[in-house]
């Protein structure tokens, strides 16, 4: 596996929550990760709506980007659960030589070919792979006042048949990283719950019901904020939640721990404010 990455920012982060992009860039630079933007990037054909509409369009769209990454010998790094699953399931599916041949037939019309040599990572497993010492060595700020409820989000751990790095039951990566960063983890995920974001544009009642199911557990845990590696879950928690429990994307907690200021990473753009613990009003 290479140590240099093409950073795939996705759609939601750069357009709606670019503050998460800012935090991620600070974090990657602080950890000395070699990264540059994936050239010719498009949407990953997200796994909820678009991919449902046309599965073959998903596969060739991701394969095109994998082919681009492969020419430079870089792996793909994502900041979003949806992007991660979209890429990872495509990588997994394209291990089938017959399917790869079909996809390459389409890609050949663009003068491109994918040979199956790219790996996809999520910021979560990249951080976890650094290990306790690796993460702690970058910490510049005491975050013990942050009582976090980890929420991994579905697409970083299900379906396990796609060869995802996190396990589907009792995930541990997010809680581990949060502890290594110095925050206080106040709840553990058993069977990870869904935030309801996937039906937010279809049925408000179903989506809100799912959101409240998961948030009520986090509120009872005594958490001062939810922590998630997924920008879709982040947006669902920040914009649609009724109970007012603030949320941080993993990149934000890492950036704060590594010494970035709340102003620098745009914490002011959160709808549900973090208040005094973040060091900003």
């Amino acid at each position: 596996m290479s140590d240099s990455y093409y950073l795939f920012k996705g759609c939601l982060i750069p357009t709606r929550v670019p503050n998460l992009e800012k935090a991620s860039l600070i974090v990657l630079d602080a950890m000395g990760v070699d990264h540059r933007p994936l050239p010719g990037a498009t949407c990953c054909v997200e796994p909820i709506g678009l991919r449902s509409m046309a599965a073959d369009t998903w596969l060739v769209t991701v394969a095109r980007m994998l082919a681009i990454a492969e020419t430079e010998g870089r792996d793909v790094l994502t900041l979003c659960n949806g992007c991660y699953l979209s890429f990872q399931e495509a990588c997994h599916a394209l291990q089938d030589p017959a399917l790869l041949e079909k996809v390459n037939l389409v890609l050949s019309s663009l003068g491109r070919e994918y040979r199956g040599g790219v790996k996809v990572r999520h910021l979560l497993d990249l951080a976890h792979e650094k290990g306790e010492e690796g993460v702690k060595s970058h910490v510049r700020r005491d975050l013990s006042a942050f009582k976090v409820a980890p929420h991994s989000g579905c697409h970083v751990l299900r379906p396990s048949k796609a060869g995802l790095r996190e396990r589907a039951y009792a995930p541990r990566m997010l809680g581990d990283v949060a502890r290594w960063l110095g925050s206080t983890v106040v709840s553990e995920e058993g069977w990870p719950e869904c935030c309801g974001g996937g039906v937010a544009s279809i049925d408000d009642g179903v989506s809100t019901g799912m959101l409240e199911d998961v948030c009520s557990v986090y509120r009872r845990s005594g958490a001062t904020c939810i922590l998630t590696p997924c920008p879709f879950c982040f947006s669902q928690f920040d914009l649609r939640q009724k109970g007012g429990l603030p949320v941080l994307h993993l990149s934000e907690l890492m950036a704060l721990a590594f010494g970035a200021t709340p102003e620098e990473i745009g914490l002011r753009y959160h709808r549900t404010k973090l208040g005094p613990i973040s060091g900003s009003p």
Partner: peptide, 24 residues
């Protein structure tokens, strides 16, 4: 936030159009 402006280049959009046309 001092981030660069988002822009998609013509070649990317042309390639995407070709893929969409060839698929469902």
């Amino acid at each position: 936030l001092d981030l660069d402006e988002l822009a998609s280049d013509a070649q990317t959009l042309n390639e995407l159009a070709a893929l969409v046309k060839a698929t469902t």
